[in-house]
Nucleic acid binder design. Structure first.
Length: 882
RNA sequence: GGGCGUUUAGCUCAGUUGGUAGAGCGCUUCCCUUACAAGGAAGAUGUCGGGAGUUCGAGCCUCUCAACGCCCACCA
C-alpha cells in the first residue's frame, strides 16, 4: 500500500474509498483462501446459499456478518478457516421470474419447449448468480470465492442423483398417489411447509342431500360447495343417534342426482356443523383417508389449473370454469332448487402457496415422497446426545417437536427448473428404472418432474465439499462443518433436512452448532417485505454510513436470546459515529507516533495510567474471546465500544497527552498508545474489518503479517495484569470527576483558576502524588497542596470526599456558600440512604447467618467507608456554616 | 387446541450462576480545550406489566392473571 502522510489524514472517516481499497487488497493477497492441506485445526462454515433470484436484504446482512465474524475470529485465532460461498437455484422462484419475462414477450414456457426454456433460465441464473455474492462482498464477507458453488452445478447435481438413488434403493423414497398441496398458479405440488395458512372470512353452507328413497334428506355443512360433485359418500359418526338409521342408505347429490352412500366413520365430529360430512377423496386430505378406509374410488372434479373438469360428474354449465366461479354457480343453483338451507359466516384457515400466495388446492396426485420417519431418528438422537446443539437453546424444542411428528416429504415438483428426477420409464413397457444415468436413452424417457429446491440444499454442507467423493481434500479437512448460522424461519426447510441427510450419507452431523439469530424487522416490528415497501436496502445503508457501521450496528442489536431486531435507517448513525471515533482516535495516535522506535513496551517504566489501560485491555481481550466462543456476539460489540470509547479515548488518550509532553515518559507512552491501538483494532477486526485493516496498515511498527486479518487475535496475558493499579486509577477518576462536578455545579468558569488542598489519607497519598499532572490538566487545577488528613479546612471551601481523603478547593469570595451546602447535603443524603439499607441488612441475623462470608465482609467494609465519608461531609458542612 | 417469545428510563432495548438497575438516542447546563461538534464535560429520569409465593434478599426462581407477537396443528 502507498505511503500516507500521517499528519494529514482527513478528520472524517471515508468508508467508501476505504472499503473497496481494502477488500481488493485482501483479494489480492488471497487472504480468504483456505488450504485443505494445512495442518492447522479446521474451522468451516457453509453459507446459507442465497437465491439466485435474490437481491441482498437485511436478513442476509445480519446472517453474513455473523458468519464473517466467526470466520475472521477463527482465522486470526490460528484455525485453517474455510467459508464456502454459493447460491441456490431456487426452483419455483427462478422459474416464476423467467416465466414472467416470457409473458411480457407474449409467449410462455410451453411454446418455448423444455430445452429452450432451460437454456434461457440458465442464462438468467448465470447472469444473476454473481450479483448477490458481489453484494455480499460489500458486506466484507471473507468467503473463499475459488470454492463458490451453485446448487444446480455439476457437483451438486451428482450428489443429488447419488442421494436419490440410494434413498430409493433403501425404500426411503417412493412414488405414490396422495393428496398434496397443489398450487394452481405454479402448476405444481408443494410441500406441507411451503403452505402457509391464513385466516379468512368465509361461509359455511348447509346443503340438503335428498335420500334416494325420498324418505327425507340429510343436511351437510361445507365451506367448499363446488367440490360436492366429487363427493363419493356422506359420512356420519357411528354412534350418532340422529343418523343411526340412515347409515347404509343412499342419497343423491343435488344438481346432478348421482347416488352416493351414507357411511359411518369415527373421523366425523358429532358436534361440529350438522354432524354429517360430505366425502370428497380427490380434493381433501381427510376425506381421502376416509375414502380409503371405505374402499371408495375418488372422483376428480377440479383440474391442475383450478378449473372444473369436463366430466360426467360435473354439471356441463361449469365445465372448464374456475373453482370460484363454479362455487357461485353452485350456490345459486342450490338456492334455486331449495337445497341450500342455511348460510353462516365462518372464519377458517386457507392454505396459500408460500411463493405466490395462490390458494392451495388439495389434490390427489401421483408424486415422489421421502419417508422421513426412519431418517429422523438420528437427527432427533443428535440433540439428546449433544452432538448438535441449538443456540439459543429454546429452538431445540421447536426442532424436536417437528421432527418427532414428521410426515413424509413431497419432493417432486411439476416444474422444469431444477434437478430432474433420476427415474426412467421404458417407452413401451413403462417399466421404471431409478439410476444416476439413463440406462438407454433410445428406450427410456426420464421422469419429467424436478426435485424440491430444498432437496439439494439439504446436501449443501457435504455436496460443496466434494461428496460423494469422500477422498476429496476439502471433505476430509473441512467436513463436518463447525457451525451453521441462520434465521429461525428455515429450521424446518433447511436445517432439519441437512441434519437428516448428513447423518444418512456421511454418518456424521453436518455441523455441531446451529446458531439461530433473530429476524430483522422495520421500526414498527413489521417483517420487511418488498410488497409492504418497508425494506431497508443494506447497500444503501453501506453507501450512506459505511459497511463497518452497518455491521457494528446490526451486531450490537443482536441479543443472546436471539430476539428479532428492529431497525430504522437512522439507527446506523450509532455504528457510523463509532467508526468515526475509531478513526479520529487513531488519527491522534498516528500523529503522535512521529519518531517512535520499534521497541516493545518497557515494562519497567509503566506509569499507573499505562498499567491501568493495559490491564483493562487484557480483561477486554479475555471477555471478547469468551463471548465469541459462546456466541454472544452482540455483547462483544458493547464491550469493545465501551473499552475503546470510554476507557481508551476518554481517559487514556487524554492522559497520554500529558505523558507525551514529559520527555522521560514520551517514548514508552508512544509504545503503549501504539500497542493498545494495535490490539484493540485486532479485537475489533471481526466486527469492523475495513476500518481496522486500514488503520492497522498505517501504524508504524514491525508486523508479523501482511494484514490485520491474518494477524493473531489477542488473548489474555498474565504479564499485562495490573489489578492494584486498576483499583487505584478508579480513585483518580473519581477525584477528577468530583472536581469537574464541583466546578460545573458551582458555576466556576473555565477561566477561573482553582487550587486544591488534598487532605490525603496515609494509604492514598502516594496515589495522588503519582497523578498530580493528570489532576492538574484533566480537572483544570493550577496548584496542588498536600495536607495531613486532620488539618484545618480553609473557610469557604468547596470540597469533594473520595475514598478516605478529602479534596479541598479554597474559594473564598468565589462561591455561594448555600449552594455548596446544598450540594454537600445532597451527596450526604445519598450516602446515608445507601448506608441505611446496608445497615438494615447487616443487622438482620438471618442475613449474617445465610449470606456468603465474602458478601458480609464487603458489606461491612462499605458501611465503614460510608460512615467515614458521611462524617467527613458533616464536618465540611459545619465548616461552611462556620 | 398445543408450544414459544415479549412486557425494565420519554423512545429502542441490554441485564445466566438471585446481592437494592445499565446503554444508545432524546432531554437540561456548559464548552469549537491543537484526534473527533458524527465531539468533550457535568447532570436529570425507573413502585423492572398486575397479583401471590419461595428466600435473609427477587428484574432474575415458582404459580397466576393481563396485553401484544410468533410458530405448529387445523373440524367439514
Amino acid at each position: 500500500m502507498e505511503t500516507i502522510d500521517l499528519q494529514n489524514l482527513p478528520t472524517v472517516y471515508d468508508p467508501k474509498a476505504t472499503e473497496s481499497e481494502i477488500y481488493s487488497y485482501w483479494e489480492h493477497i488471497e487472504a480468504f483462501k483456505a488450504n485443505a492441506n494445512s495442518s492447522k485445526q479446521p474451522f468451516s462454515i457453509v453459507i446459507p446459499p442465497p437465491n439466485v433470484t435474490g437481491v441482498l436484504h437485511m436478513g442476509h446482512a445480519i446472517d453474513e456478518t455473523l458468519q464473517d465474524i466467526l470466520v475472521r475470529y477463527h482465522r486470526m485465532s490460528g484455525f485453517e478457516t474455510l467459508w464456502v460461498p454459493g447460491t441456490d437455484h431456487a426452483g419455483i422462484a427462478t422459474q416464476n421470474v423467467v416465466e414472467k419475462q416470457l409473458r411480457t414477450e407474449g409467449t410462455d414456457r410451453h411454446q418455448l419447449g423444455r430445452d429452450k426454456f432451460l437454456e434461457r433460465t440458465w442464462d438468467w441464473a448465470n447472469k444473476h448468480k454473481s450479483h448477490i455474492l458481489d453484494q455480499c462482498k460489500r458486506l466484507g464477507a471473507s468467503f473463499d470465492r475459488t470454492r463458490e458453488r451453485f446448487t444446480l452445478d455439476e457437483g451438486c447435481s451428482n450428489a443429488v442423483k447419488e442421494v436419490f438413488v440410494k434413498l430409493y434403493e433403501k425404500d426411503l423414497i417412493y412414488k405414490g398417489a396422495y393428496i398434496v398441496n397443489w398450487c394452481p398458479r405454479c402448476q405444481s405440488a408443494i410441500s406441507d411447509i411451503e403452505t402457509e395458512y391464513e385466516t379468512e372470512q368465509g361461509h359455511m353452507w348447509e346443503i340438503s342431500y335428498p335420500l334416494k328413497d325420498e324418505s327425507g334428506a340429510i343436511l351437510v355443512a361445507t365451506t367448499r360447495p363446488e367440490t360436492m360433485f366429487g363427493d363419493v359418500a356422506i359420512a356420519v359418526h357411528p354412534d350418532d343417534y340422529k343418523y343411526k338409521d340412515l347409515i347404509g342408505k343412499k342419497v343423491c347429490i343435488p344438481l346432478t342426482g348421482k347416488e352416493i352412500p351414507i357411511i359411518a366413520d369415527e373421523y366425523v365430529d358429532k358436534s361440529f356443523g350438522t354432524g354429517a360430512v360430505k366425502i370428497t377423496p380427490a380434493h381433501d386430505p381427510n376425506d381421502y383417508e376416509v375414502g380409503k378406509r371405505h374402499n371408495l374410488s375418488p372422483v376428480w372434479v377440479i383440474d391442475e389449473e383450478g378449473k372444473m373438469i369436463a366430466c360426467g360428474d360435473v354439471p356441463p354449465n361449469i365445465h372448464g370454469k374456475d373453482r370460484y366461479e363454479a362455487r357461485e354457480w353452485t350456490i345459486k343453483n342450490l338456492e334455486y332448487n331449495k337445497h341450500l338451507l342455511r348460510v353462516r359466516d365462518h372464519e377458517h384457515n386457507v392454505g396459500k402457496c408460500q411463493r405466490c400466495g395462490t390458494t392451495i388446492e388439495p389434490l390427489l396426485s401421483e408424486q415422489w415422497f421421502v419417508r422421513m420417519k426412519p431418517l429422523a431418528q438420528k437427527a432427533i438422537q443428535a440433540i439428546h446426545t449433544g452432538e448438535i446443539k441449538f443456540i439459543p437453546e429454546r429452538w431445540t424444542k421447536n426442532y424436536l417437536g417437528w421432527m418427532e411428528n414428521i410426515r413424509d416429504w413431497c419432493i417432486s415438483r411439476q416444474l422444469w427448473w431444477g434437478h430432474q428426477i433420476p427415474a426412467y420409464y421404458h417407452n413401451e413397457t413403462g417399466e421404471m428404472v431409478v439410476a444416476k444415468e439413463n440406462p438407454d436413452p433410445t428406450k427410456y424417457t426420464q421422469d419429467t418432474n424436478v426435485l424440491d429446491t430444498w432437496f439439494s440444499s439439504g446436501l449443501w454442507p457435504f455436496s460443496t465439499m466434494g461428496w460423494p467423493n469422500t477422498d476429496s481434500a476439502d471433505f476430509k479437512k473441512f467436513y463436518p462443518t463447525s457451525v451453521l448460522v441462520t434465521g429461525f424461519d428455515i429450521i424446518f426447510f433447511w436445517v432439519a433436512r441437512m441434519i437428516t441427510m448428513g447423518y444418512e450419507f456421511t454418518g456424521k452431523a453436518p455441523f455441531s452448532t446451529v446458531y439461530i439469530h433473530g429476524l430483522i424487522r422495520d421500526e414498527h416490528g413489521q417483517k420487511m417485505s418488498k410488497s409492504k415497501g418497508n425494506t431497508i436496502d443494506p447497500v444503501e445503508v453501506i453507501d450512506q454510513y459505511g459497511c463497518d457501521a452497518l455491521r457494528f450496528t446490526l451486531i450490537s442489536l443482536c441479543t443472546y436470546g436471539g430476539q428479532d431486531i428492529k431497525v430504522s435507517n437512522d439507527k446506523f448513525e450509532y455504528g457510523r459515529n463509532f467508526a468515526n471515533k475509531i478513526w479520529n482516535a487513531s488519527r491522534f495516535v498516528l500523529m503522535n507516533l512521529e519518531g517512535v522506535d520499534n521497541q516493545q513496551i518497557d515494562m519497567s517504566k509503566l506509569t499507573i495510567a499505562d498499567k491501568w489501560i493495559l490491564n483493562k485491555l487484557n480483561e477486554t481481550a479475555k471477555e471478547i474471546n469468551e463471548n465469541i466462543k459462546n456466541y454472544r456476539i452482540g455483547e462483544t460489540a458493547h464491550i469493545l465500544y465501551d473499552f475503546f470509547w470510554n476507557a481508551y479515548c476518554d481517559w487514556y488518550v487524554e492522559i497520554a497527552k500529558i505523558q507525551l509532553r514529559n520527555e522521560d515518559e514520551k517514548a514508552n507512552t508512544q509504545r503503549v498508545l501504539r500497542y493498545v491501538l494495535d490490539m484493540t483494532l485486532r479485537l475489533l477486526h471481526p466486527l469492523m474489518p475495513h476500518i481496522t485493516e486500514k488503520i492497522w496498515q498505517l501504524i508504524p511498527m514491525e508486523k508479523e503479517e501482511k494484514a490485520i486479518m491474518l494477524s493473531s487475535f489477542p488473548v489474555y496475558d498474565n504479564k499485562l495484569a495490573f489489578e492494584k493499579e486498576a483499583v487505584e486509577m478508579e480513585l483518580v477518576f473519581e477525584t477528577i470527576k468530583s472536581l469537574r462536578n464541583a466546578r460545573q455545579s458551582l458555576n466556576i468558569p473555565v477561566s477561573t483558576v482553582i487550587n486544591i488542598d488534598i487532605h490525603a489519607s496515609k494509604e492514598e497519598k502516594p496515589i495522588f502524588e503519582a497523578v498530580t499532572s493528570y489532576l492538574k490538566r484533566l480537572a483544570k487545577v493550577e496548584d496542588i497542596k498536600f495536607s495531613e488528613p486532620d488539618s484545618t479546612v480553609a473557610k469557604q471551601s468547596a470540597s469533594a470526599v473520595v475514598g478516605n481523603s478529602k479534596i479541598i478547593i479554597p474559594l473564598a469570595g468565589l462561591i455561594n456558600l448555600d449552594e455548596e451546602i446544598a450540594r454537600q447535603n445532597k451527596k450526604l443524603e445519598k450516602l446515608l440512604n445507601e448506608k441505611k439499607s446496608l445497615d438494615s441488612r447487616i443487622n438482620n441475623p438471618k442475613f449474617v447467618s445465610n449470606a456468603p462470608q465474602e458478601l458480609i465482609e464487603t458489606t461491612k467494609a462499605r458501611i465503614e467507608e460510608l460512615s467515614n465519608q458521611a462524617a467527613t461531609i458533616e464536618e465540611l458542612i459545619d465548616n461552611l456554616r462556620g
